[in-house]
Amino acid sequence: MVYYLEQLSNGLAIGSIYALIALGYSLVYSILNLINFAHGYVIMVGAFVALQLLALGVHPALAVLLACCSGALIAMLVERIAYRPVRHANRVIPMISALGAGLVLSAAAQLIWGPEVRSFPQLIPRFPVEIGGINLSSQSLVILAISVVLVVASSWFLHRTRFGLAAQCVRQDMVAAQLMGIPVNTVIVAIYALGGFLGVAGSILFAMYFNAVFIQMGLLATTKAWAAAMLGGIGSFQGAFWGGILLGLAETLAVITVGSAYRDGVSMAIIVGVLLLRPAGLFGTTIKERS
């Protein structure tokens, strides 16, 4: 029994990290209906920036803040260079150009920081915490809490603020929103920036939890978080959260039952199964488009 409880806590820990990164995808998708494949790479660069600043002796809180801002800045650049020029093209094209931007970021990061895996300073102390007989890592509890707060904050931001309402108008009809006086370009840039900012916050926690920063982090974040976002219902913040948690649990379940070698296979099969039954994901709503 203790064994299963411990595995459950392992699943929750990894799941909350997936959730945090999936949030960034959902943010952009909820407004633009665009899968921002550059997101994983943007946040990887952000994590390296944080590491660099810390190595230069910048105060940890300031370093994290600046790294998040750098994430926002890079995301804005990606929007300007790889997304805006093709915004009105076929939907596949911005997806490809975003992926291209991601590869450029990944190559640039390797040139600057090299291909090695770097260790990341433990800004949040890490020790085993015993709750009801099972061991949890102090960090995973903090990460879980931060994920919940960010999910709630993002939902509030998008549904309760003037900016959020403007963003929703942009989603419903870009041209009409523009005609109504909503600064569409500003809204889109801001959404990207916010996605980058939160994403880097997530990637720093990710780096701290695994004690590793590495170039392939971009691809890892892309595949896992994207799968989590799909599972939960892409575009829904609640969905991103639960999708992440469920993916983490599914992976742990796979390790327990058929062995770690089949972890990704089993967890992806679960996602395919869910999507067959609920194509919009667990929390997704299908929005009917005007013909």
Binding site: N10, S260, R263
Partner: peptide, 22 residues
């Protein structure tokens, strides 16, 4: 006990550790 991982992809070994210890 034996456990495989996908090189350069898997970074989470907590489930494997728990399994090994059990």
């Amino acid at each position: 006990a034996d456990a495989g991982f996908t090189p350069n992809v898997d970074k989470d070994f907590s489930a494997i550790v728990t399994d090994f210890v059990a």
